[in-house]
Structures are given as structure tokens and as C-alpha cells.
């Protein structure tokens, strides 16, 4: 009986996918239009979180706990990524006195 009312009122999976893709696209736009390296980094975090939300939604939809464990691993990965990335940004700032992304045009290879 209660599961029936759940069926009628619960949010469709499509709406979760739509929400996640909108937020992911906003993150992509942020990467493309900003020049401040830290703001670009924050846009990447936004994209990661959109994917996390969608993984959780799918996990609940399928009744499979693996998806949520995967989100946990992504969070650990994001923490490592932020630590290294911010260290690199601090180093760039120390060498060039700016975190404008166009300074990186001077990279040699």
C-alpha cells in the first residue's frame, strides 16, 4: 500500500538525469568562460558533484549499494585532486604573481 503511493508520487529518474546534466553543463561553461584558475577549479568540482548526484540517484533506482560506494571513492579522489591542484596553483602564483590561466601559455614542452 505504501509502496503504491510511493510509485505515484516519486520523482522520475529522467528529472534527476536532467538536473545533473544541467549542472554539469554549467560547470563546463564555468571552465570555458572564466580566467581565474581557482574559479575554474571550482567549476570542475561542480561537474564532479553533478556526477555524484546522478550516481546516487541510479544507485537508489537500482537498489544497488555499489553506486554509493563509488561516490565515496570519487569524494576521496576529489580530496586528493584538490590538495594537489591547489598546491600547483599556489606554486604558479608564487612564480608568476597571478593565477590568470593565460599565463600558462608560456609553458614549455
Amino acid at each position: 500500500m505504501e509502496s503504491l503511493t510511493n510509485t505515484i508520487h516519486a520523482v522520475p529518474l529522467n528529472h534527476y538525469i536532467l538536473l545533473s546534466s544541467i549542472i554539469f553543463s554549467i560547470g563546463v561553461m564555468g571552465v570555458l568562460i572564466r580566467r581565474n584558475a581557482i574559479v575554474i577549479f571550482m567549476s570542475v568540482e561542480l561537474m564532479l558533484n553533478a556526477v555524484n548526484l546522478l550516481l546516487t540517484a541510479f544507485s537508489v533506482y537500482r537498489g544497488d549499494a555499489s553506486g554509493q560506494v563509488f561516490v565515496f571513492f570519487i569524494m576521496a579522489l576529489a580530496a586528493a585532486e584538490v590538495a594537489v591542484g591547489l598546491a600547483i596553483i599556489v606554486m604558479i602564483y608564487r612564480n608568476t604573481n597571478s593565477i590568470d590561466i593565460n599565463v600558462l601559455n608560456r609553458l614549455k614542452w
Partner: peptide
């Protein structure tokens, strides 16, 4: 470019049709 990405994702979602609710 971001808008194109969003439209592409939403359109591919549209082709799936109605989905089951998340329960």
C-alpha cells in the same frame, strides 16, 4: 558550447521517453 552540450544531453534523454520513478 555549454548550451549545446546541455541541449544534446536533454535531447538524447527525450528519445528515451518516460522513465520509471526513483523509488
Amino acid at each position: 558550447g555549454g548550451g549545446i552540450l546541455m541541449v544534446a544531453l536533454a535531447a538524447s534523454l527525450k528519445s528515451i521517453g518516460a522513465s520509471n520513478p526513483v523509488i
